[in-house]
Simulated assay, not measured.
Amino acid sequence: MKVVVGLGNPGRQYLGTRHNIGFVVVEACAKLDPAAGWRLKFSSQCCEVRMGSETVLLACPQTFMNLSGNAIRQMVGFHKVPLVDLLVVCDDMNLPVGKLRLRAAGSAGGQKGLQNAIDQFGSNQFARLRFGVGRPPGQMAATDYVLGRFAKAETDDVDLAVGRAVDAVRLWVEQGVTAAMNRVNAAPEGSV
């Protein structure tokens, strides 16, 4: 089994915000399997899907972003999944809108949900797919920016990038992190 976790905040007021793009990607992955059914488990909305020959647990923690690590630790511990079989999908303000970056391990880069997962495991040795949301304009606070919604002019780019992110998740599941990184990180805009 592999585990793919999208980071975000629960609640209707956060639907469609930049900070919830991890939820959007994971929910789009679930649509690949028409038999997928969501249920509340491990403090998360979860469903199991098939990707190639793999069973994949998809999860959207229902804790708030900064406490995501506890939910992730619960599901990984219960299923005895090694960290190499965990992928966390999150927003990244240091990447332009729609740009994807896949890494096998590394720092949180200021992403508090990712940092909480690192703290919970005492390790940063799990994959992460970062989805660019761009930088706040002018003097806007980072928190206000990530809790805001994408501009109408960004919608098409975001929708295309969500499709590329789903392809990136599938590549990670079916071919492993190295092959997926080689494709995702080298891909010209608009492809994976």
Rank of each mutant, 00 (worst) to 15 (best):
V3A: 14
L7Q: 02
L7A: 05
G8T: 01
N9L: 14
G11H: 14
R12F: 12
Q13P: 00
Y14N: 10
L15Q: 13
L15K: 11
T17F: 09
H19Y: 04
N20S: 09
I21C: 03
I21F: 03
V25A: 09
V25H: 10
A28H: 07
L32S: 15
D33S: 10
A35N: 09
A36I: 02
G37L: 11
R39G: 02
K41V: 05
F42I: 04
S43W: 13
C46H: 01
C46E: 05
T55L: 10
L58E: 03
P61W: 10
N66P: 07
L67G: 06
G69L: 05
Q74Y: 10
F78W: 08
K80M: 05
L86R: 06
L87G: 02
V88E: 03
D91Y: 00
N94G: 07
N94W: 00
V97S: 05
V97M: 11
A105V: 04
G106R: 06
A108T: 04
Q111A: 00
Q111G: 00
L114H: 00
N116P: 01
A117F: 02
A117H: 09
G122S: 07
Q125G: 05
Q125A: 12
F126N: 01
A127C: 08
R128F: 03
L129A: 01
R130N: 03
R130A: 03
R130M: 01
R135H: 14
P136C: 08
P137F: 14
Q139W: 15
A142S: 10
A142P: 00
T143C: 09
D144G: 10
G148D: 08
K152C: 08
A153M: 15
A153T: 15
E154I: 11
D156G: 09
V158E: 05
V158F: 07
L160G: 14
L160M: 15
L160D: 06
A165P: 02
V166F: 11
V166G: 04
D167W: 15
L171G: 11
L171I: 04
N182I: 11
V184I: 11
E189I: 14
G190H: 10
V192M: 15
